[in-house]
Design a protein around this nucleic acid. Structure first.
Lengths: 147, 147
DNA sequence: GGCGCCAGACAGTCAGCTTGTCTATATGGA
DNA sequence: TCCATATAGACAAGCTGACTGTCTGGCGCC
């Protein structure tokens, strides 16, 4: 394997795919069959309690129109509620319902499960090394669909 | 919060996004502005010289109709040619044109560049550790759009 | 008050993928 | 040899999720 980085690149993409598949499968297995991966990452932003639709758009790196559609989906299915923003009557604050919190928890559990599979296949020190290195490389910012 | 794996999961997704963005940007910078990331991974399969449209579909994890559309795109733009398969008159073998090979090379260069940014930010031993670990975790198989 | 800016809604469009169906060819068994 | 079944690929129609453009209502600064 020539170390030109191509193999590493492919490996990263494969891991990302494993992860998304694992989370999606785990979330569905826990009874939430009407959510897509992107919804989980919207929940992450919404769970802070101070998010508007425009904030979700920035978080996911999509237009606010697309975010509005996505949030509408979540509202329709009972994961999210829109509340008036006491400080800005144009805005609607987004808050998770109980179902929304449950789904968020399910997503995190599923992620833990999938990453757990990696842990099991690595020595403890290798895993810690990996986690540290990934953390160092990952830049904060939008978390968006990969391609 | 650490070590429930969530942070690691997020980091993997962020890296994958960095990678796709980097490759896409680099490929466009090299003059190929009519290809999408998925096309690059189709090239990988086609470059073996024995691929049919159905093979590309399996490789990308999409339906063969979607693959046919994608391949049609590549044929229209001069990246790929369809040839009769001497052993099966139903099938059409896909081969890369010169332009197709050039684009494949551009994608690999762009990937190398992006991974090179990671290398620069890590010690040599940390990078090698990372590459080895990722390689151990990545399972062979389809390489498909991430979500 | 008047001006521009921002949140969100509504309408229209488009790309990419899906399912369903069809023809032509291949393959294996009675 | 003939027929049943499977496969490669083409064509058609429809869906989803993204996009741009436009509009209203509320904010905030001068």
């Amino acid at each position: 394997m020539s170390d030109d980085g191509w193999d590493t690149a492919v490996a990263v993409l494969r891991l990302a795919a494993q992860l998304i598949d694992g989370i999606q499968e785990g979330v569905q297995r826990r009874g939430f069959d009407d959510v897509r991966p992107a919804h989980g990452f919207a929940f992450v932003r919404i769970s802070t309690g101070d998010a508007t639709t425009a904030d979700v758009a920035v978080h996911l790196g999509i237009t606010k129109q697309a975010a509005a559609q996505l949030v509408g989906h979540l509202v329709d299915r009972g994961y999210v509620e829109r509340r008036p923003d006491p400080r800005d009557r144009r805005a609607r604050l987004l808050v998770l319902t109980d179902r929304g919190w449950a789904c968020t928890a399910a997503a995190k559990e599923a992620a833990t499960e999938t990453v757990g599979l990696w842990k099991k296949r690595l020595s403890q020190s290798m895993y810690r090394h990996l986690a540290t290195t990934l953390d160092a490389l990952a830049e904060p910012g939008r978390l968006r669909p990969v391609w």
